[in-house]
Amino acid sequence: MSIMEYNGGSVIAMVGKDCVAIASDLRLGNQALGISSNFQKVFPVTDRIYVGLAGLGTDVITLRERFRYRVNMYTIKEEREIEPETFAHLVSSTLYEHRFGPYFIEPVVAGLSKTPSGGLKPFIAATDLIGCINFAKDFVVSGTASSKLFGLAEGLWEPDLEPEDLFETISQTLLNAVDRDAYSGWGAVVHVLTKDKIISRTLKGRMD
C-alpha cells in the first residue's frame, strides 16, 4: 500500500501558443473504493497562476491552504502579485521544509508570466514530493496515471497550439490516460489560461 496511491488522482499541465492548460480528474477514493466524484485538485493561485495537487487527499487540502496563506503574505509584503516562476520556488521550498516527513503531494504549476516587454509567456513546472523542480517546456504530469499521461502527451502534444486546440489535446490526453487507471477518473476538469481570459470546463468522462 503506497501512500501516494491511497486516494488516487492525476494532474497534467501543457504549454500552448501564448497560453497554458492545466487539468485533473475528480476522483477521491479509499484505495479501490470510490468516495467522491467531485474532489478538486486544481486551484487558482492568482488570476494568472493555477496549481494542481496530486497525491494524498488530506495533503491536497492542507497544502492548498498553506499556499494560499503564503501567497497572501507575499502579496501583502511585496505589494504585487506573485509571478509563476517565484510561485514554483515557493512550492519547492514549502515542500523541502518537510524533507524528512514530507507532504505526499507532487504539485504541478501552470501560469502566464510577465516578460520585460510587457507580454505574457507560458510557464509550467512540476516538483516531486520534496520539492525538486522540473521546468519542462512542453508538458508535466503527476499522479497515479502519470505513466499513461506521459505516453499520451508524448504522442498527442505539439508546439504552438492555439487555446482551443490545446484544450482538445489536454482533454484527450487526460481522459484516455485516466480510463486506463483504476485510481483516477470519475470526471475531469480543464482550465486554459490565455492573455485575456480563462476557459474552465468540466468534462464528461467514463464513470467506471
Partner: peptide, 19 residues
C-alpha cells in the same frame, strides 16, 4: 515495459476512445 504509455494512446487512436 512501455505498455502503460502505449496502450491508452492506442485506445485513443485505434478505437477512437473519448472521440
Amino acid at each position: 515495459a512501455a505498455q502503460s504509455l502505449v496502450q491508452p494512446f492506442l485506445d485513443n487512436q485505434i478505437y477512437f476512445k473519448n472521440q
